[in-house]
Amino acid sequence: MNYHKISQEIKDIAFRLLADKEVELVLGFGKEKFSGQSTPLITSSPEKAREMIFDENCAMMLANYLREHAGKKVAIIAKPCETRAIVAYLAEDLLVRDRVTIIGIQGCTGVKDNTACQECTVREPVLADYTVGEPLTDEVEAQDDLSLEEMSPQERLEYFREEFSRCIRCYACREACYACYCPVCFTDSNRPRWVEETLGINENFTFHLMRSLHMAGRCINCGACEVACPEGIDVRALAAKLYRVSRDLYSFEPGMDPEEKTLFATYDSEDPQPRFID
């Protein structure tokens, strides 16, 4: 990917949209001053928009910020996975289409330190008003990570116990996820108490199971949760499993069509039930 060229195109479009008052706000990435990393740059100033960049460090999901700005006319720099998040928001009626201007990045080859990018099949924007960069000419090899599937159930149970034993319940995974937006998370619910706040393998395990159930049919497998985890826990594995189940059993992949009903909002009378008792 030619990040320089893409960054230039982004700057131009963002500047023009703000200067012409077509949008009130642009969500993009800027350079972190010291580390050389990227950071969200959300601005209403055309001048400031000229500081926007895009490179392989821009791992964060800017789409997460769309909900809080849902009332305004906003433009967003969106990686293909983020366009899916936006489509999923539209499907859940959380955004109004004509209030969002999508500047889609074409030919995405993934971001740094995100294992999900290796499983990604969506390399071009699903929905965009402007596109930047060049579409990929070759098929990119995408491979599901099935290493856990090959283990025995007992091994998997041990694996997750080990992983979740490190969880400090900072909820960074939750915060990083585009699809986590309940006004009150079940973790904070007292009546009833779905999961104890205390740390413990049982509680941590329960939390991650419940969180991934909430992602069922909604997770776009973007990997933001995994990137966000300070403990390096494999927090994506459970939701990614459900992503695969949804895709393989129901041919449903969220965030591809704003008109399509979400997985649990519809059914087919011939839906499979592979492990049910006959």
Binding site: E92, D93, L94, Y181, C182, P183, V184, K261, T262, F264, A265, T266
Partner: peptide, 21 residues
């Protein structure tokens, strides 16, 4: 109402049109 995120899934699954956003 304080907990509701208005996602509308309930409306989709209700066979009697009894809940809606």
């Amino acid at each position: 109402e304080e907990l509701c995120s208005a996602c509308g899934t309930c409306e989709e699954v209700c066979p009697f049109k009894a809940i809606s956003v």
